[in-house]
């Protein structure tokens, strides 16, 4: 979903949902998909970002994932986190149910 991407962003990663269960996944440097943002490959600059997004294609063609897109990464206290509230919620789970989602499964950060 392109509307969630920020064209001005400098530091980005690629996310998608897994086809079979819809779980949020991130593209790793090896072209695999991880449930943890910490495993995500980070691209700096526009060209690197486009190259990274292109690496999602095999999984898309093999119907492993759905709707991959780039999202902006920011640095906060020395760690990399999603820049938008939306992507922080996707990374962790609902802010109103801390017992659910990745935050409850030890899959954040």
């Amino acid at each position: 979903m392109a509307q969630h991407s920020n064209k001005m962003a400098q530091v980005q990663a690629v996310t998608a949902n897994r086809l079979i269960d819809g779980v949020v996944v991130y593209l790793t440097a090896k072209g695999a998909w991880s449930e943890k943002l910490a495993d995500a490959a980070i691209a700096e600059g526009k060209e690197a970002a486009e190259a990274l997004l292109a690496k999602a294609n095999p999984a898309l063609e093999q119907q492993e994932i759905v709707e991959p897109y780039l999202f902006e990464i920011a640095e906060e206290d020395g760690t990399l986190v999603p820049a938008s509230v939306r992507e922080r919620i996707r990374m962790a789970g609902p802010t109103v149910r801390l017992d659910l989602g990745k935050q409850a499964e030890g899959k954040t950060a």
Binding site: N17, L19, I20, G22, V23, V24, I89, R90
Partner: peptide, 25 residues
């Protein structure tokens, strides 16, 4: 799931049956 139809083709079908893809699932 068998990869016989793409997401573009499947989306209108799942939407006719109340299945959305939301943030987490």
């Amino acid at each position: 799931l068998a990869g016989e139809i793409t997401e573009d083709e499947f989306k209108p079908l799942r939407l006719m049956n109340g299945v959305y893809l939301q943030l987490h699932a």
